[in-house]
Simulated assay, not measured.
Amino acid sequence: MTELSQIDLQSLAAGHKRTWDAFVVAASPLINAVVRRSLANYRLSEDDVMDAAQDVFVRLCTNGFRLLKTYDPARAGLSTWLAVVSRSAAVDFARRRRQATSPIDDVPESALAVEDRHVEKLKIPEGLLTERQALILKCLYDEERDVAEVAQLLKIDAQTVRSTHHKALLRLREHFKEEAP
């Protein structure tokens, strides 16, 4: 049995059948394992998992082995590169297999089981958050603005908005965790 490291990549990318066959035998265990692990949470059938693994090989040889030709041994080992390609292909496969959804406007309200209750607004103790944290939470949640809008409004970097938001949530979690019975 041929090892992945023994595969002649130039011959493989040139489309030689014997080299391709040896590559498939050598790469199958790795590709199958990565695809299986990547799809473990998608609840797909065994046939779907095998189809996803087959899809990896199809991607590698499509368009004159275009994807395979992008492999750069200076950046990663072949098995590492194949694992990344396999995971990406598996996730794409699972996304294509997702069940079709209906627009929410087409679903009867009774099927949604939505209750029309007003949620009580969380009362944040005075002084728990900084003024900036409180303002950012107000903009993000009360005014339903996105991070870019808040950053533009406050004339700060979007990463500052995300960081401040994160720190505010940490403070809130810590405070309300202490109050819980």
Results as ranks from 00 to 15, higher is better:
residue 61 C to Q: 11
residue 52 A to M: 14
residue 44 L to D: 10
residue 43 R to T: 08
residue 61 C to T: 13
residue 75 R to F: 12
residue 50 M to Y: 15
residue 87 R to P: 00
residue 44 L to V: 08
residue 86 S to W: 05
residue 83 A to Y: 03
residue 62 T to S: 08
residue 36 R to P: 06
residue 103 P to A: 09
residue 90 A to L: 01
residue 105 D to P: 00
residue 54 Q to P: 11
residue 58 V to M: 13
residue 79 S to V: 00
residue 93 F to H: 09
residue 82 L to C: 08
residue 44 L to E: 09
residue 37 R to Q: 13
residue 91 V to S: 04
residue 35 V to I: 12
residue 91 V to A: 05
residue 88 S to A: 11
residue 65 F to H: 11
residue 61 C to F: 13
residue 90 A to E: 01
residue 102 S to A: 07
residue 55 D to Q: 14
residue 78 L to P: 07
residue 90 A to K: 03
residue 39 L to D: 05
residue 58 V to N: 02
residue 77 G to A: 12
residue 78 L to E: 03
residue 35 V to Y: 04
residue 36 R to S: 14
residue 97 R to F: 00
residue 76 A to D: 15
residue 52 A to D: 10
residue 97 R to I: 00
residue 64 G to Y: 01
residue 71 Y to A: 01
residue 89 A to R: 05
residue 97 R to H: 05
residue 83 A to P: 01
residue 94 A to E: 06
residue 103 P to N: 13
residue 40 A to I: 14
residue 49 V to Y: 05
residue 81 W to A: 05
residue 67 L to S: 01
residue 87 R to S: 03
residue 57 F to K: 01
residue 77 G to Y: 07
residue 46 E to H: 07
residue 91 V to Q: 03
residue 65 F to R: 01
residue 102 S to M: 10
residue 67 L to V: 15
residue 91 V to F: 06
residue 65 F to V: 03
residue 98 R to E: 14
residue 97 R to V: 00
residue 37 R to L: 05
residue 86 S to Y: 10
residue 93 F to N: 04
residue 86 S to T: 09
residue 68 L to F: 03
residue 50 M to Q: 15
residue 58 V to F: 10
residue 38 S to W: 04
residue 77 G to M: 06
residue 70 T to L: 04
residue 70 T to F: 02
residue 88 S to D: 13
residue 64 G to A: 02
residue 53 A to K: 08
residue 85 V to M: 15
residue 91 V to D: 02
residue 55 D to M: 14
residue 65 F to P: 00
residue 83 A to M: 12
residue 74 A to P: 00
residue 85 V to S: 12
residue 104 I to D: 10
residue 98 R to D: 09
residue 103 P to F: 09
residue 66 R to Y: 14
residue 71 Y to Q: 01
residue 82 L to I: 11
residue 41 N to W: 09
residue 78 L to D: 03
residue 101 T to Y: 01
residue 103 P to Y: 11
residue 39 L to M: 10
residue 98 R to P: 03
